[in-house]
């Protein structure tokens, strides 16, 4: 019987987990501990619904409803002086609750504060683009689409950014293996040489620990070099590689170590 491998999360798993291990938490502080954040949160709460808010590692985290993202970011930019959208992306929670979590990392240079706005969307749901508020969201949203397949409504150019346009799959989903699927494995061969070349070129070698001393195609034999494709018998003659032929080369002086000066201190 084959061992069961989960399909919803194909990322690396720890090979040993203590069943009774309870992971500690990064401490969450109440918003009231910081006057600036408290005022900001009050301003957000006055207009929009906030489901949760706390301070973690010096930054305020605010959970909002997905439909309000444009409004909240506009409020933050125009009234609360959060002038930069530093970063935005998504987190894949599909396996657990069929949701994506999207975060917007905001920076206020006047207040020297950072706020993380977070929201959940359903699988397949699109977000409102904030490209018109922050130009930096233009590329971030494209990257998010590329990596997770989350589309942004109202984005002027919703296409892949990091991967080629004809790529299949969204790599940062937990269902996507690190080494790629069938399509990714043959992408360049299919594109350049066509599908019939797959047999000639052969599959990718993905095992980084693979060593085969009888494979002269892919492995060098230091000190016992043979031409590519030779059948290895184990009785290869010892060859010494020098940068120049023994007999010297036409019109080229051979480097003589004895008559050279060695500089020990490169900064002299």
């Amino acid at each position: 019987m084959r061992a069961y491998t989960p399909k919803d999360n194909v990322q690396a798993k720890p090979y040993y987990t203590d069943r009774f291990y309870i992971s500690p938490q990064v401490p969450k502080e109440a918003i009231e501990n910081d006057a600036v954040f408290a005022a900001d949160l009050a301003a957000i709460k006055a207009k929009f619904e906030v489901s949760d808010a706390y301070i973690q590692v010096g930054q305020m985290v605010v959970y909002i409803h997905a439909k309000n993202n444009y409004g909240v970011l506009e409020l933050l930019r125009d009234e609360l002086e959060y002038t930069q959208l530093t970063e935005m992306s998504a987190i894949d929670w599909l396996a657990k609750e069929n949701k994506f979590e999207i975060f917007y990392q905001m920076l206020s240079m006047n207040k020297r504060k950072r706020v993380r706005i977070k929201m959940f969307i359903e699988n397949g749901q699109a977000v409102n683009s904030v490209n018109e508020l922050f130009r930096s969201a233009d590329w971030s949203e494209r990257e998010m689409f590329d990596m997770f397949g989350i589309e942004a409504n109202g984005h002027p150019f919703m296409k892949r950014i990091l991967l080629p346009y004809d790529w299949q799959g969204h790599p940062l989903l937990k269902t996507y293996p690190l080494e790629g699927d069938e399509f990714a494995a043959w992408y360049e061969i299919d594109k350049i040489y066509g599908k019939e070349a797959r047999d000639i070129i052969g599959p990718e070698l993905r095992d980084p620990a693979r060593v085969d001393r009888y494979d002269s195609e892919r492995f060098a034999r230091l000190g016992f070099e043979v031409p590519k494709g030779t059948v290895i018998t184990g009785h290869e003659p010892k060859t010494e590689q020098s940068y120049q032929e023994e007999g010297g080369v036409f019109m080229i002086k051979k480097f003589d170590k004895k008559s050279s000066v060695v500089i020990d201190d490169p900064q002299r």
Partner: peptide, 21 residues
């Protein structure tokens, strides 16, 4: 095994703000 939680830390790399979330 770090504790459960999230962190965004920005440092000033020669190019600009290098952040790790």
């Amino acid at each position: 095994r770090p504790p459960v939680g999230e962190v965004y830390v920005a440092t000033e790399s020669p190019k600009g703000e290098l952040g790790f979330y």
